[in-house]
């Protein structure tokens, strides 16, 4: 396998910080100091770099990354919608406003197997709860949709999140 060149968006120290923290921050009173010690730089460098990564959106957020299943959100439905391409932007924006939609993406159809072009993740504690929420989306869309489906995840096969590899 070819070695992947480091991305120009981040330099070597950023990259080392990403690798050292992508599985989590040290759970010690001074985690950035602990990282600094591991990486052989000053705590100020670590904190400056992380503030910059946060400001640039490279770090989306810092905090708890919950496991939906263990929190009782066991009926996670990927609702998928066939929406007229001309109406996707407006429809997606409206769906994204709903507080129970966690992600909403416009994606390409894969005809004939897959007619859907708008994806909205809906989390619920039961399929009934997810279905009630999907009905709300359907009501919001009205005749702007030509069909929808809900795909439930029946099992997590892998969940590691982003991993930088050498």
């Amino acid at each position: 396998m070819n070695r992947i060149a480091p991305s120009p968006a981040i330099d070597d120290l950023d990259r080392r910080i990403v690798k050292a923290t992508q599985s989590g921050l040290p759970l010690v009173p001074r985690p950035y100091h602990a990282l600094a010690e591991t990486l052989g730089v000053t705590p100020e460098q670590i904190m400056d770099r992380m503030r910059r990564l946060l400001a640039k959106g490279i770090i989306r957020r810092i905090g708890a990354v919950p496991n939906h299943y263990r929190l009782g959100y066991t009926a996670n439905g990927m609702s998928v919608w066939d929406v007229d391409d001309a109406a996707v932007a407006e429809t997606g924006a409206a769906m994204g406003q709903l507080d129970f939609v966690s992600h909403c993406y416009h994606r390409p159809r894969q005809l004939p197997i897959w007619p859907y072009n708008l994806f909205a993740m809906v989390h619920g504690r039961s399929r009934e709860e997810v279905e009630a929420k999907v009905k709300k989306i359907a009501a919001l869309l009205g005749d702007r949709e030509d069909g929808h489906d809900i795909l439930y995840s029946t099992r997590i096969l892998k969940k590691t999140g982003l991993r930088l590899v050498d």
Partner: peptide, 28 residues
């Protein structure tokens, strides 16, 4: 707080505690 976060991670309630990186913003 630290003890509870350790337990929530160990129990799998949290996948992890720390920064969530955006792969596209990383140039990927």
């Amino acid at each position: 707080l630290i003890e509870r976060l350790k337990r929530l991670c160990a129990d799998g309630v949290l996948s992890r505690f720390g920064p969530l990186y955006d792969a596209e913003q990383l140039g990927g």
